[in-house]
Design a protein around this nucleic acid. Structure first.
Length: 325
DNA sequence: AATGAAGGCAACCGCAGAAGG
DNA sequence: GCCTTCTGCGGTTGCCTTCAT
């Protein structure tokens, strides 16, 4: 795959990087004749390229209206907004960024924005905070069991284990059971906190957040229930909460209903983006020093200092958790 | 200065849909 | 309705440049 230099198997068609001479030929021909049929163009223009290659070169590089250079912050925000709604529809996104090609946007997304979202703890496809920790729970439980069977007593307070061993107890099954019970308590605690926080906000439950098409926080118009939720529960920064407490900065994006096709309406889009769930990247990238590594905590709500996703549930110095991490 | 890793861009490939016969 | 051709799109990857050791 990718670029394969040289000629194709017939030896007639050139592949690989374009030379300035080829660029000039293509440019000259299109300026004089237009591109018409791409299939015939190479022959007419005297190029040993396939039509597809010519079209790509023209649309991605030679077109006179192409804007080159770094993406501005406005463009970055626009891409994020549109991607959150349209997904990998690069050509559709490109229509809203004059002078930018779909290929350029795609590359920019893959090399910059996607990585940054991941680094911030967001899923680049859903634009929502990642829930990897909960997804990985079965594995964590299995790991706990395995470690317990291998005699990994380090997760418990040494004084407690010493006491138990002194009493002649068989530690392995006890440790295993204790760990699982502890994990269950943590989960119950998490679920309870999310549910109560949501109940306090009058409308959105944890399950609602999961079930909503674009994420409940994202779809709810700004200034309605979510505004209340974020203020009412500001002190209880749960995973669900983090989603809700964000507002996106206004960005100069216009979306027509016909562009969105089956994806909803421009009104939906407005609601989604402007009541949305993503913080501005510029701010977050600046804050990427420390608490921003691969966990969902990153800089949600600002000022969460713990390296753990949800310090309310999993205190930093919790031996059980530190043992896992 | 040399070397390996990572980042970034350009270009190719395969697929899907539209258009035409 | 079916087949063929053409075009456009999205995913992927080769190669060059930059950075870190």
């Amino acid at each position: 795959m990718g670029r394969s230099p040289g000629y194709d198997e017939s030896g007639l068609l050139k592949k690989g990087p374009w030379t300035p001479e080829e660029d000039e030929k293509l440019l000259d021909f299109i300026q004089k004749n237009g591109h018409g049929s791409w299939r015939n163009l190479p022959r007419l223009a005297g190029l040993k390229r396939c039509g597809k290659s010519c079209r790509l070169r023209w649309t991605n590089y030679l077109r006179p209206d192409i804007k080159r250079g770094k993406f501005s912050q406005d463009e970055e925000q626009t891409i994020l907004h549109l991607h959150s709604f349209l997904g990998n529809k690069w050509s559709a996104i490109a229509t809203h960024l004059p002078g930018r090609t779909d290929n350029e946007i795609k590359n920019f997304w893959n090399t910059h924005l996607k990585k940054r979202l991941i680094q911030m703890g967001f899923d680049p496809m859903t634009h929502r905070p990642r829930t990897d920790f909960f997804d990985a729970l079965p594995q964590l439980v299995a790991l706990a069991a395995l470690r317990g069977q291998l005699g990994g007593a380090s997760a418990l307070d040494p004084s407690v284990t010493a006491q138990m061993q002194g009493a002649g107890a068989d530690m392995a099954p006890i440790l295993q059971a204790a760990k699982l019970q502890y994990l269950q308590c943590l989960l119950q605690s998490a679920a309870t906190t999310i549910a109560s926080a949501s109940a306090g906000s009058s409308a959105v439950s944890a399950s609602d957040v999961e079930a909503a098409p674009f994420g409940a926080a994202a779809c709810t118009p700004q200034g309605t229930t979510l505004a209340g939720a974020s203020t009412a529960t500001a002190s209880a920064s749960t995973a669900g909460d983090h989603q809700m407490s964000y507002t996106f900065p206004e960005a100069p994006v216009t979306v027509s209903d016909d562009l969105l096709l089956g994806c909803g309406t421009a009104g939906d889009y407005e609601n989604y983006c402007h009541g949305g769930s993503l913080p501005p990247l510029a701010d977050l990238s600046d804050a990427a020093d420390g608490g921003c590594s691969a966990t969902a905590s990153s800089s949600f709500g600002g000022g969460v200092s713990s390296p753990l996703p949800w310090p309310e549930f999993f205190p930093d110095d919790d031996p059980f958790i530190t043992d896992f991490l």
